[in-house]
C-alpha cells in the first residue's frame, strides 16, 4: 500500500515536470536565446564591457558576480559543515597523525623541495594573469592547496601546518568571502550598487584592480580551504 502511494506521488510529480521539460527549446539548438544574443554578446563585448580579456573571467566575476559571490559563500559554509561533522579541534589538528613519524625518503624530499617553488610561481601566475589568459583564482588556489597537501605529505604534517599560521588561518579560509564583501561594498560606495564595476573607460585600471583583488581572494581562500579539509580528515579523531 505504502509503495503504491509512493509510486503515485512520484508519477504525479513526474508528469507535470516532463510536460514542462517538453516545452523547453531543444538543447543546443542554434535558435535558442542563449545562442542568439547571450553568447555573442559575451564573446564580442565581454573584454570591453567587463574588463578582462579572458571571457570566462568576465562572466564569472563581472556579469555573474552575484552568482560567484553566493558560490564562494557556499564553499565556505561547506568547510564549516565538514569541520563540524568531523569534530576536529585546532589542538587535534596540530597533533602528528599516525604514520607521520616514519622515516622520510631523502630523494622524495629533495625532488619535492626542488619542484615546489616552480609550482608556487605557476599558481601566482594563474591567479594574477587569470583575467588575461586561461586560469584564474579558483584554479590557482586549488593548485596551491594541492602544493600545501604535497608538502605536508612529504615533508611532514608540522611543516605543512606552519605554511598557514594558526592565528591567521581563519582569515585566510574566509579570504574569498571577505574579498567579495570588500569589493562589493566598494562598488556600492563608488558606483551605487553592490558589486558594481566602474563603467567609465578612464577607470579601467580600477576595474582591473577589483578583478585581481577578487581573484587573489578566491585563490587564497580556495587554497586554505582545501588544505584545511585535508588536515581535518587526516587528524586523529
Amino acid at each position: 500500500m505504502k509503495r503504491i502511494a509512493v509510486i503515485a506521488v512520484l508519477v504525479a510529480a513526474f508528469v507535470p515536470l516532463a510536460a514542462a521539460v517538453a516545452q523547453l527549446p531543444t538543447f543546443g539548438e542554434a535558435s535558442n536565446p542563449t545562442n542568439t544574443y547571450l553568447v555573442p554578446r559575451y564573446l564580442q563585448k565581454g573584454p570591453e564591457e567587463a574588463g578582462a580579456a579572458n571571457v570566462v573571467t568576465d562572466v564569472i566575476l563581472n556579469y555573474r558576480g552575484y552568482d560567484t559571490n553566493g558560490e564562494v559563500v557556499v564553499i565556505f559554509t561547506a568547510l564549516i559543515a565538514a569541520l563540524a561533522t568531523l569534530l576536529v579541534r585546532p589542538k587535534q589538528m596540530a597533533a602528528t597523525p599516525p604514520g607521520d613519524d616514519a622515516p622520510r625518503s631523502p630523494i622524495v624530499s629533495f625532488v619535492v623541495k626542488a619542484i615546489a617553488p616552480f609550482i608556487a610561481v605557476f599558481t601566482v601566475y594563474l591567479v594574477l594573469h587569470g583575467h588575461l589568459s586561461p586560469g584564474g583564482g579558483f584554479q590557482g588556489g586549488t593548485i596551491f592547496g594541492a602544493l600545501i597537501i604535497l608538502l605536508s605529505l612529504t615533508l611532514g604534517h608540522k611543516y605543512g601546518l606552519s605554511l598557514l599560521p594558526e592565528r591567521s588561518r581563519p582569515w585566510l579560509q574566509a579570504a574569498a568571502v571577505l574579498a567579495f564583501i570588500a569589493v562589493g561594498l566598494l562598488g556600492w560606495a563608488l558606483c551605487g550598487a553592490y558589486l558594481a564595476y566602474p563603467s567609465y573607460s578612464q577607470l579601467e585600471w580600477v576595474r582591473e584592480g577589483w578583478l585581481i583583488a577578487l581573484e587573489i581572494g578566491i585563490g587564497v581562500g580556495g587554497a586554505a580551504i582545501f588544505a584545511t579539509v585535508f588536515w581535518t580528515m587526516e587528524a586523529e579523531p
Partner: peptide
C-alpha cells in the same frame, strides 16, 4: 624526467 622516477621510488 624528474617526477616520474621519484614517484616510482616512493
Amino acid at each position: 624526467l624528474l617526477s616520474s622516477p621519484t614517484a616510482a621510488h616512493a
